[in-house]
Amino acid sequence: MAQERKKRRACVSQGECVACGCCVKVCPVGALEVFRGLYASVSGDRCVGCGRCAGECPASVIGMQEETV
């Protein structure tokens, strides 16, 4: 039987992202990248939900979300 698990992961509000890349620099698992100078995007599989990017983001546009996987 599949067990219901919760996973915490980062989520970028891309319309407000300034594409500075501060989050990319602090992610310990390389789960973030800045897409074409427009906004940061999170690779959901890699993100371990540590929240470092959210703390670093100068625009505070990264939220941590709980997801059921």
Partner: peptide, 28 residues
Amino acid sequence: RSWCVYCPMGTMTQLICRAKNGKPFREE
């Protein structure tokens, strides 16, 4: 790095990127 939020060079380069790469804004 709050300065990076309103740094004119940062804003300008982002605008150039948007002009070049289209404007595919989508919430994740």
